[in-house]
Simulated scan of single mutants.
Amino acid sequence: MTFDATLTRINEGVQLHHQQGERAAARDLFAQVWDEIGGERGDALHVCVLAHAMADVQDDVRQELLWDERALAAADRLTDARVAESGVPLSVAGLYPSLHLNLAECHRRLGDLDRAREHLRQAEAGIDALGDDGYGKLIRDGLDRLTQQLAAG
């Protein structure tokens, strides 16, 4: 494992958002890092993690969806070796349930329930890649909530 300054900066933005409630500051930091890594052409791990985090600080669901789609496209370019090298404690397969959950939620909020259900199915199909830990529980709970919301219409 090597020290990854870019992932450290992305984590700083995540902390700004989740622990300090500074969505705008996090969004600004993420935008700086996005430019530094070369946008979508950057390292797939950096693009995936950054886009996943950037989606969470968007005020418009369409922008959130765009960032979530970027994260998914970057995950498709990732390898387990690259993820392991960075010290991220997941396989590439372990990223997909969360990515598809976020896409499903965006589509639900936009009223596209068919696409929401499709992403929900894809998230559920990959759930076995998650461990029996806090992260796995978080994603499983999110899938359960979304399933109930979609069932309610």
Rank of each mutant, 00 (worst) to 15 (best):
D128I: 00
L72T: 12
E85N: 07
T8E: 13
A24T: 13
D43L: 02
A71N: 03
A25E: 14
D4T: 10
E85P: 00
G13P: 03
D133R: 09
A31M: 02
Y96Q: 03
Q19W: 08
A5W: 04
L103N: 03
A25R: 13
E105H: 11
A125W: 05
R82A: 15
L146E: 12
Q58E: 15
Q32H: 11
G153H: 08
R117Q: 15
I139D: 07
M1G: 13
G111D: 12
A74I: 02
V14M: 10
D132C: 00
A55R: 11
R117F: 00
G42P: 05
D128K: 11
A71T: 06
L138I: 05
Q148D: 14
G153K: 06
L66A: 15
G142K: 08
A55C: 11
L101F: 14
E64R: 15
D68Q: 09
A55Y: 02
A25N: 07
E124V: 14
Y135L: 10
R9E: 14
G142S: 10
A116W: 06
A25D: 11
R9W: 01
A93H: 03
A93L: 03
A53K: 09
A75Y: 04
L138Q: 12
L138T: 13
R117D: 13
Q32I: 00
S98Y: 02
E22F: 04
A53W: 01
C106P: 01
Q58M: 14
L143P: 10
M1D: 09
D35Q: 15
L78V: 07
K137Q: 15
L7M: 11
E118G: 05
P89D: 07
E40R: 12
R108F: 13
V88E: 03
G94S: 05
A53H: 12
L65R: 13
A93N: 08
L143G: 10
V14E: 10
V33R: 01
K137L: 14
A71G: 09
S98N: 14
A84D: 12
E124C: 08
L45S: 08
L65G: 04
L150T: 06
A26I: 02
